[in-house]
Design a protein around this nucleic acid. Sequence first.
DNA 1: GATGAATGAGTATTCATTCAT
DNA 2: TATGAATGAATACTCATTCAT
Lengths: 208, 208, 208, 208
Amino acid sequence: MEHVWAGQVAEDSKSKRQQILNAAYDVFSRKGYYRATVDEIIALADTGKGTVYNYFTNKEQLFCTLIQERGDPFQRAMEKVAASNLPALNKIEAIIKLTLGFYGENADLWRVLMHEVRGFGCGTNQANLSPETLEKYQHGFASLIGIFEKVLAEGVDQEILRPINLSKVAYSLFSVCVMMVYQNLVDDDIDVTARNIASVFLYGIARY
Amino acid sequence: MEHVWAGQVAEDSKSKRQQILNAAYDVFSRKGYYRATVDEIIALADTGKGTVYNYFTNKEQLFCTLIQERGDPFQRAMEKVAASNLPALNKIEAIIKLTLGFYGENADLWRVLMHEVRGFGCGTNQANLSPETLEKYQHGFASLIGIFEKVLAEGVDQEILRPINLSKVAYSLFSVCVMMVYQNLVDDDIDVTARNIASVFLYGIARY
Amino acid sequence: MEHVWAGQVAEDSKSKRQQILNAAYDVFSRKGYYRATVDEIIALADTGKGTVYNYFTNKEQLFCTLIQERGDPFQRAMEKVAASNLPALNKIEAIIKLTLGFYGENADLWRVLMHEVRGFGCGTNQANLSPETLEKYQHGFASLIGIFEKVLAEGVDQEILRPINLSKVAYSLFSVCVMMVYQNLVDDDIDVTARNIASVFLYGIARY
Amino acid sequence: MEHVWAGQVAEDSKSKRQQILNAAYDVFSRKGYYRATVDEIIALADTGKGTVYNYFTNKEQLFCTLIQERGDPFQRAMEKVAASNLPALNKIEAIIKLTLGFYGENADLWRVLMHEVRGFGCGTNQANLSPETLEKYQHGFASLIGIFEKVLAEGVDQEILRPINLSKVAYSLFSVCVMMVYQNLVDDDIDVTARNIASVFLYGIARY
DNA sequence: GATGAATGAGTATTCATTCAT
DNA sequence: TATGAATGAATACTCATTCAT
């Protein structure tokens, strides 16, 4: 696409893949999986159509790569917090904060993902994505919730929290985080929002 | 239409239109708006293609009819509870219960609706549905949340609840209800789940 | 459609056909043959869809009936003038006048007809109308031109006109009449326009 | 695209796009705009359906391209004659000849165009083509007639022609040309026909 | 590697016509 | 006779994917 000097070419060939990923992020976020077209992606990435298929076997695999590259660091960060030796309550606040931060940054793309993986991991799917892909993300989602559960379990073990249904509360906490993000209800200072969420879940909204 | 015995007539009068609506419910629920094809709907409804367009002007209008016919009674039921003179806490539990019940019954279709109306009412849309339709449902969603807020506000006024950010808590409560439904975490006895959700929000999960 | 007294019914059943024809005239004129829909016609005629097919076997046959009912009187009027014993020049002016008048009144519908009968009667058709229908109108058109020729021939025989190619001049005269109508170049007093057209053809536009 | 010998290249560079245009010319000419189907065009052009939409945005735009590519040279040729310094009478004959030639070669397609642009530029349209397209061609038609008028005006100015209604005669001349073509009344030697037409208009058909 | 021309399966929608009442 | 619900063939257009250069 560029008839320039060699150095440029080398850089270009390295960045082609990234250019495509960046463009794909943009387009998938704005249009959703189905309405995103390869044509729009290449226009934005300034590449040829074939190039996409050199790096990615599929529209689907392109999408998955995107998800993975962005999601993995988050997953690892969450696991790191869970494995740390912070006090239980601090851990709870920390994972809330991480979750708010991550979804805040990736709101649009993850909204798309969530729809494609229909209903946060359940059901009778016959979606746009292949069954294998679907399963993968459902699994990933489950392990994310697992982290919430694990942290909550610590609180229960340490008798800081009442004996609760871990799974339900984990899902609830997660859903509230996501909802706050999607409704633009997260304060400029994420810490504040995280603390508020934690506060509601810990102490409730009733007087006394 | 048929000079047969009453039972038949009753079935027939619902006939084509209802058959189509039922089939559409099924297909939209399983496939989402975009992937749902009119062809599949008519195959399931056992009608000709033209028949769909006799009763509905559009794929979109078919979808909207579906949503409206199911959603309106729910909305009204919610408003009725809000307008009742139950004690504030009972109202809260009641709207939670209604919400769990409604989403439990319409889980799949409302999942689809929520995706199309992107992220529960926000954002940079370029969806499958027309802007007008979109706006309508965003408005409907907002008024649903409004009911949660109103009921919570009563609790605050009556000094049963602490002074909270009504909007945030309303969204939170709603999101938890929906999440419970979508994760199949609702007990056979909805009352139990409703009470548990209320309990967590009111008194928190911390000991003391 | 009306639950009225018998007399009315009798009138209605007679007028249904006419109502449909009137509506059809309107719709075909405005939309052309292809874009005219039976639905629009019945809406205008205030009849049921089936009724159209009681009186007319086809959309095509409905159109043809329309053409015939309007065209036949014109054809006969033309023939009458041709058979009259007016002086040749007066005959020419008379058929010009008749033509201007007829096309003026039926401009839109005849525009449609002319298109369907592609190119005033020639060629490699594969039109909307059936071959038989086509042929019929091409024949009708030919006999119309024939009348022009016949009248011109009289002029030549009587040595009022130079020896000309009758056919060419006939077609020319006709085309000018139609063009005047379609371009709204016909004066309020048709006689004036007819005389002008005759004048140009008879004496030319050159000085001397 | 092909590293082959020149002849091949020439053919190929015209290749798909031109194949489609040729096929489209054929089909539009035979079927008219509405009945011409993209399926038939691609069958004739021996291409895939998508290919058509790579080169043309629309069925309409395909049609317009066809018209433009053929019509523009004619329009320019006419303007050139009008701007030349031939004697007025020769100009008249020349534009008649050009018109006969052009419509002779493009009879079928222009018949279609004329119908779509309803009645040579008038009226209550609700056509198949978009309003913009329509307007464009109505304008093009008007400017064609304008050339006739201009040339006639010269004759009047030079007192070769009587003071006539330029517009009416212009339309008349044009309509006669077109009619001659559509009725296959043009002689093998176009000059002859052109001279005859001019002769009738200039000197009339009456003796003396 | 990079490209983009070519492809065709897939989809919403229209509308003349039928036929049971 | 009048009706209109039901029908399905027909049609423009989209877009992921391939492959020759």
